[in-house]
Amino acid sequence: MSIPGETPNPYGQPQPHQPPQPPQQSPPQSPYGQPQPHQAQPLQHNPYAQPTMPSVPLGGYGPMGTPPGAPPTGSGGGRKGWPWALGGAVVASAVWAGVLFATGGFDGEAKADLAGYRYTNNLCTATDAQTIEDAGYQQEDGSANPQHSSSEDPALDSMTCNIDFEPNDADSDDYSSVWLYTTASLHKKTDPAPEFEAQYRAYEEQKTSSYSYKVSPVNGLGAEAYVVTQVSKSGSDTGAYVILGVRDGWMTYQSTWSEYLSSSSSATAKTPEEATAMLKKSARATLEKMKE
């Protein structure tokens, strides 16, 4: 029985042992009304439903397939279960909002993980050349050595450095071509991880009549790293060509060692293994400087 003037309870449930009454033509059926036994009823839109995390029902599914958030059935009826359901919705919504803020999901983009690396307009100042010099080389004299370039962009920061070297024990009339080329990129919009390994594995398919490439993973550098070694089919030991690629978060780094000495040179070229060890040591020092 209701008190005159009291607003009808929209969540009222049928009394125990009494079958639910079919909805009247007027007023319209409550959006929380239960379907009749043995009758398939379309699920009504719940205007009070709170957004939840994907695939996580609001408060779970109740008896007889009631939709998430609907008041519980039984003699308790009324508004007994609604505050709990509403509280669960608020908590779930807050958690989901926190996830979106943390990942940048509100604007449809993940937040770039630059792992502490910073843009510099002169990568040569961060590139570790001391490791190369300690291995028996000196930088060639000239106003154009070293050379650097850089580009800062909202989507991608790019930096390069090229340094020409010559062996310390080379004669003045020896021909040599020795250089270290370093690049670094800060990816601000796209995670480079899914494609990083594939970029270096692609070298394995590049073969000529003179050489091929060998690709190997490297441990202890960034999140992942690979070394690409050019293998001469003639067995020549007059030089080495080695590429080292490193990814740390959304930062990618690559250093390339290229050395060629004439067969008559008095100097001795580095083996691919020696060049690889040299690049690893130089990369560690360079990456540390890029965080300063």
Results as ranks from 00 to 15, higher is better:
205 E>A: 15
189 K>C: 02
147 Q>S: 08
182 T>G: 01
240 A>S: 15
207 K>E: 15
223 A>W: 05
199 Q>R: 14
152 E>C: 01
214 K>W: 06
163 I>A: 03
192 P>N: 09
165 F>Q: 05
227 V>K: 07
236 S>V: 09
227 V>L: 07
163 I>N: 05
170 A>Q: 09
182 T>A: 01
186 L>M: 01
141 D>N: 13
149 S>K: 11
149 S>R: 06
194 P>N: 03
173 D>T: 14
232 S>C: 03
218 V>E: 09
233 K>Q: 10
234 S>M: 02
153 D>I: 00
235 G>V: 03
227 V>G: 06
142 G>P: 02
202 A>E: 10
157 D>G: 12
190 T>C: 04
223 A>V: 08
197 E>W: 07
148 H>M: 07
178 V>P: 06
175 Y>I: 08
217 P>C: 05
223 A>F: 04
168 N>E: 12
183 T>M: 13
147 Q>W: 01
194 P>E: 04
221 L>Y: 09
199 Q>S: 15
219 N>H: 02
235 G>W: 00
236 S>W: 05
198 A>I: 01
154 P>L: 10
193 A>R: 15
227 V>M: 07
172 S>A: 12
190 T>P: 03
144 A>W: 08
148 H>D: 08
199 Q>V: 11
163 I>T: 13
210 S>Y: 15
173 D>A: 13
184 A>K: 06
149 S>N: 13
237 D>F: 05
186 L>H: 00
189 K>N: 05
147 Q>V: 04
175 Y>C: 07
228 V>L: 10
230 Q>P: 03
165 F>G: 04
223 A>R: 10
223 A>T: 15
146 P>I: 01
209 S>D: 06
154 P>T: 11
158 S>I: 11
186 L>S: 00
223 A>N: 14
240 A>C: 12
196 F>Y: 10
234 S>F: 03
154 P>R: 12
173 D>E: 14
164 D>Q: 10
195 E>L: 13
222 G>N: 05
178 V>W: 08
207 K>G: 01
149 S>V: 02
158 S>V: 13
209 S>F: 00
226 Y>H: 09
180 L>D: 12
141 D>A: 15
198 A>V: 02
151 S>D: 04
231 V>Q: 15
144 A>V: 07
150 S>V: 03
227 V>E: 11
196 F>P: 11
215 V>A: 00
197 E>K: 14
230 Q>K: 15
191 D>M: 01
208 T>W: 00
166 E>C: 03
179 W>N: 13
242 V>I: 15
210 S>K: 14
153 D>Y: 04
154 P>D: 14
229 T>N: 11
200 Y>W: 13
203 Y>K: 07
144 A>N: 12
159 M>F: 13
174 D>Y: 11
147 Q>L: 01
230 Q>C: 03
201 R>C: 06
176 S>E: 14
229 T>P: 07
200 Y>V: 00
158 S>W: 09
241 Y>T: 09
156 L>G: 08
207 K>Y: 05
185 S>F: 04
222 G>Y: 04
150 S>Y: 03
212 S>E: 15
148 H>I: 04
142 G>W: 03
